[in-house]
């Protein structure tokens, strides 16, 4: 299993400072501040519509924040001069709906951006792809098309696709929410291994077990704000805020 080169640990991997995001009239993020240290796994929970996805999508600028600061490995990524594509190669993103490219085989899914963006040669890209497929237990599916994979396999292939870019950190937006219950375990196993190998991760999830076991930090969001943050065990066992208590009483 490959270890990820961790950048200097004194620079936070992700630094969100007083972030605001508004869709027209709707204020979705109302001053969110959050730090993810290198090698840390931060889980984000909260009710539907609280802005979890929006926060995550701001971090790789799939959404443009309205105001605030966003630094990735110390670099201000809201700087208009910055090359967004370059920043994004260092941030892996895993979606609830997998979003594999259906017209390409699994292997081509994994090699496309390596070749187009990183300029890797065909052989090198395929080799990296195969390493990562092995890592998620899908080496035998390299030539299959996404439509022929189960949801859990698709999501693991999507994770392998992100890993093939050798990112410094990974963002997960409810990676198991679209899966049949019996397929959730395999995906969580892959994520657990990834965390164990030192990958920096920000995970929006409803899997409280995963958050408790793997997370270094748990963030509870409600109504566009971070209501409570702390050690996952503490927050889950003894939520201090009433909104956290009522949310957890519904989901646990």
């Amino acid at each position: 299993m490959t270890e990820f080169p961790t950048p200097p640990t004194d620079v936070p991997a992700i630094e969100v400072v007083d972030l605001y995001k508004r869709f027209g009239e709707l204020e979705v993020l109302k001053g969110v501040s959050l730090t993810v240290k290198a090698g840390q796994v931060v889980c984000v929970i909260g009710p539907s519509g609280s802005g979890k996805s929006t926060l995550l999508r701001c971090v790789n600028r799939l959404e443009e924040p309205t105001a605030g600061q966003l630094r990735v490995e110390g670099i201000d990524i809201l700087d208009p001069e910055i090359d967004v594509d370059k920043v994004r190669t260092r941030i892996g993103m895993v979606f609830q709906q997998f979003n594999l490219f259906p017209h390409l085989s699994v292997l081509r899914n994994l090699t496309l951006a390596q070749r187009r963006v990183l300029g890797r040669g065909k052989e090198e890209a395929a080799e990296v792809a195969r390493q990562n497929l092995e890592r998620v237990g899908l080496l035998d599916k390299a030539d299959a098309y996404p439509a022929h994979l189960s949801g859990g396999q698709q999501q693991r292939a999507a994770i392998a696709r992100s890993l093939s870019m050798n990112p410094d950190m990974m963002l997960f937006d409810e990676p198991t929410s679209a899966l049949d219950p019996e397929l959730v375990g395999d995906v969580l196993d892959v994520m657990r291994n990834l965390a164990g190998s030192g990958m920096t991760m920000m995970v929006v999830t409803h899997e409280m077990g995963f958050a408790r076991e793997v997370g270094d930090d748990l963030v509870f969001m409600d109504d566009g704000m971070i209501v409570e943050e702390g050690n996952p065990r503490d927050v889950l066992a003894n939520p201090r805020h009433t909104r956290t208590q009522s949310f957890l009483s519904k989901v646990l």
Binding site: N60, L62, D85, K86, R88, T89, I91, G92, M93, F95, Q97, N99, L100, F101, L112, A113, R116, V117, L118, A158, R161, S162, M165
Partner: peptide, 18 residues
Amino acid sequence: VPKGQAEAARSLGMSPSW
């Protein structure tokens, strides 16, 4: 084509034209 397709490609660092 679902919006998630472009989002996945852009998240991998691919340019709008690629």
